[in-house]
Structure formats: structure tokens, C-alpha cells
């Protein structure tokens, strides 16, 4: 587009069209995030706040619950996101093979979880993993466990439940992105590879993955942002327990504001940790992906 063609009227129209969005973003995003920064230097209970300097940051370093919530969030991120991306890629490649029968059926079935509300599926998982629930009954029936697993009472297994649930909800969603991208890859590249005698698994790593790199990057960043904000699932499946083993940063912010004695300033400080983390991780992921090109 030639910018020189833009007349004065055009310029005004241009701004007029984007103005509503900008004003709304200004009020409901820019202003709150700046206010939040200011609040993170305030201390006090409830609405009675006063300037506290760096005391919230000091509190952060001494707070075992914050460390735990941060650790949990990063654990979910480090374990769940790679597993899910890997599975989504494998399903997408399998579904993309032209001779596959029942393709539409498989695709629809695997995508279906992405249609549910986060709260709804969390409740389903909570009931599936209850003490005498379906999962334990199945494990006992199959002889894999004698008394069933104490899913919600054991810090390790509770994390497994959360990771399983999130993977169930989002694998099909990510798969759709890969499927769309795979369809844009020129089939002749694979033809050539086959003629050259390159085996299927090598084709996957040498052709498919590099070609999908931009989409993989996009989905990884989106999943990272999503995981750092994890709330609905842990709130409805484990309520952060047992022993805060599944407590996430978002949930801790919520608890600091609405469950325990309200501590708005400190909650704002914790929320800035997420902002910084998202920024750093997005940057790193961009950097890593760009580097290898």
C-alpha cells in the first residue's frame, strides 16, 4: 500500500476506525496494568492501603506459598506443554496420511474436547477421579492397582490429574493448527524424499517439523501464556490442594484478594511476576526458533 496516497481525510478515517478499540484497550488494559504496577508498591489490608516501598517484593522472597505456586506453574508448563505439542503433532501427521480411512471421524473425535467449557470438563474430571470413582474402579478391575490411587490426596497424583485434564482439553485444539499447516506443505517434497529413500521418521524430523516451525512456535507461545494463567481447572478440580501441590499463580492472586484477608498490593506484585514470566518466555521461544533458521 502506498502511504503517499493517504490524504488528510483518509488519515482521519483510519484513526476513527481503530479509535473505539484503542480507547477500550486503554481503559481496560493499559490503565489497569499501570495501576497494578503502582499498587504493587502499596501495602495494607482491604481498601486501606499505604505506600510500602519494596516491602511486597521482600514479602515475595520470604513467601513459601508463592514459591510453591511458581514452582507448580512452571512444572505444569515444563511437563504438560511438550507432551501435548508432541501428541498433537503425531496425531496431525497420522491424520494427514491420504490413505487413512475414517479420517473425519477421528479428527472430529479428537478435536471435540476443545469445544467444552473449562469449568464443565474440570467437573467431569473431578468426578472421574474421585476416590471410588470411575478411574480407580477401572484400575482395580484391570488389576493395575489394589486399592485405587488417592488422586486428590496425594501431591504427586493430584498434579498428574491436572496435567491429564489439560492435555485432554487442548491436544485436539493444537492438532487442528498442525493439520491446517500440513495441508499447505507441498506433497512433492515428500515424494522427492521417498525417492531418495529417506525413512518416514526422518521425514517427520527433517521435513515436517521444520516446515511447521512457525505454527509450532505460535501454539507453544499460546500454550505457555495459557498455562501461566491456569485457573479454571485447578479451582474446580483440586482447589489448589493437596498441600498447595496444584496451586497456581493465578489462583494465589485470587486467594490473596478474595479468599484470605484482602491484600491488593501484594496480589498485584504476584501478578507482575506472571507478566514478567510471559514476556521472558515469549522472548526466549521466539529467540530459540529464530536462531535455528
Amino acid at each position: 500500500m502506498a502511504q503517499t496516497r493517504l490524504g488528510r481525510n483518509e488519515n482521519i478515517s483510519g484513526w476513527a476506525f481503530i479509535a473505539p478499540a484503542m480507547v477500550l484497550l486503554g481503559i481496560f488494559m493499559i490503565w489497569p496494568i499501570l495501576w497494578s504496577l503502582w499498587m504493587s508498591f502499596q501495602t495494607g489490608r482491604g481498601m486501606n492501603m499505604s505506600f510500602g516501598g519494596l516491602s511486597n517484593i521482600i514479602r515475595l522472597t520470604e513467601d513459601p506459598i508463592f514459591v510453591k505456586a511458581l514452582g507448580n506453574t512452571l512444572t505444569f508448563l515444563a511437563i504438560q506443554v511438550p507432551i501435548m505439542i508432541m501428541m498433537a503433532l503425531i496425531f496431525a501427521v497420522m491424520l494427514n496420511s491420504p490413505r487413512l480411512r475414517f479420517r473425519g471421524l477421528f479428527r472430529t473425535a479428537i478435536f471435540l474436547p476443545a469445544v467444552t467449557s473449562l469449568v464443565a470438563y474440570s467437573i467431569l474430571f473431578k468426578s472421574l477421579f474421585s476416590t471410588d470413582g470411575f478411574v480407580n474402579a477401572s484400575l482395580i478391575a484391570l488389576g493395575l492397582s489394589e486399592r485405587g490411587v488417592n488422586w486428590m490426596g496425594d501431591p504427586f497424583y493430584a498434579k498428574i490429574v491436572i496435567i491429564t485434564a489439560i492435555t485432554w482439553r487442548w491436544t485436539g485444539y493444537n492438532m487442528i493448527f498442525y493439520l491446517a499447516a500440513l495441508q499447505n506443505i507441498d506433497k512433492s517434497i515428500y515424494e522427492a524424499a521417498r525417492i531418495d529413500g529417506i525413512p518416514a521418521h526422518a521425514q517427520f524430523f527433517k521435513i515436517t517439523v521444520p516446515m511447521l516451525k512457525p505454527v509450532i512456535l505460535f501454539t507453544t507461545i499460546m500454550s505457555t501464556i495459557g498455562t501461566l494463567q491456569l485457573f479454571d481447572e485447578v479451582q474446580n478440580i483440586t482447589l489448589g490442594g493437596p498441600a498447595n501441590a496444584t496451586l497456581t499463580l493465578s489462583q494465589y492472586i485470587y486467594n490473596l484478594t478474595f479468599r484470605f484477608m484482602p491484600s491488593f498490593g501484594y496480589a498485584a506484585t504476584v501478578s507482575y511476576v506472571i507478566v514478567v514470566l510471559v514476556a521472558i518466555l515469549s522472548f526466549v521461544q521466539f529467540y530459540v526458533a529464530r536462531d535455528r533458521k
Partner: peptide
């Protein structure tokens, strides 16, 4: 706007609530 994508809702909820 691209940069604003990385602002998580959790960072907005306390000031939005007070607002």
C-alpha cells in the same frame, strides 16, 4: 498490540475489580 498480548488477565483482575 502484539506486546499487549502477553498481558495475562490475572494481572488485570485486581485493578479491574477495584475500578
Amino acid at each position: 498490540l502484539l506486546l499487549m498480548l502477553s498481558i495475562p488477565f490475572a494481572a488485570l483482575m485486581v485493578p479491574l475489580f477495584i475500578m
